[in-house]
Amino acid sequence: MSETLIDIQNMTFKRDERVIYDNVSLSIPRGKVTAIMGPSGIGKTTLLRLIGGQLKPESGKILFDQQNIPTLSRHDLYETRKRMSMLFQSGALFSEMTVYDNIAFPIREHSKLSEALIEKMVLMKLEVVGLRGARNLYPSELSGGMARRAALARAIALDPELILYDEPFAGQDPISMGVIVRLIRALSDALGLTSVVVSHDVQEVMSIADYIYIIAEQKIIGQGTPEQIAKESSPLVKQFVQGEADGPVAFHYPAKPYRDELLGKGMMNV
């Protein structure tokens, strides 16, 4: 068994004409928590979808356990997806099912276990996220934090090897943020899961990640352990980690010079 679970090699991805990733290579070690950080809008979620095979790159390889995801047949892709799961930002719980049925859903779909056994499995997963009492509620009755924990229980229902977390900390109050941070770390340590966390919450990521990649401007601009990242001297990384408004990543969306627009050079067209 190799140390690397996911190996992305020279991957380029375009959405229409816009380049999202330009010749990016990165590898994600097995059994560790790897964080991918970067300013919003640079396609961090896209990266997770690429790993999950929902999007196909323009060129390059995405190896999951030595299998190249983009070239897998439909059937093999679905087989591979059984080994991974994804925690969506919104939770993406099925709104017409109770919490219990949501978590039983992947088990029912992929196994022929008896209902009695499924019940035991579901209750175990619910216990892990502390929602055993909420099993009969519908997703609309859950708070945002509870919904995300329920979604996490569903994500680990089939004991996957890899969990992809899409912005797990976004929009959470400090308490549920703490709960989720603890859960991600605990799942990784106790079950040996490989975790990929996509986020822009610097503090939380620094506290749980084993290894961090920082992405900006279609490329990886910095990588290393949290300590290395904290000491990183590149201005781009520094700006991101310390949260400065302006810097190499400009505060302003690209535009014509302010002066020109205000002084009415555009008026000539009217």
Binding site: R49, G52, Q54, Y78, E79, R81, K82, M84, S85, M86, F88, Q89, S90, A92, L93, F94, S95, F105, P106, E109, H110, A151, L164
Partner: peptide, 12 residues
């Protein structure tokens, strides 16, 4: 609400 997407990721 990404339910279809999450179903796909669950290999369904």
């Amino acid at each position: 609400t990404e339910q279809l997407s999450s179903m796909e990721m669950m290999a369904v």
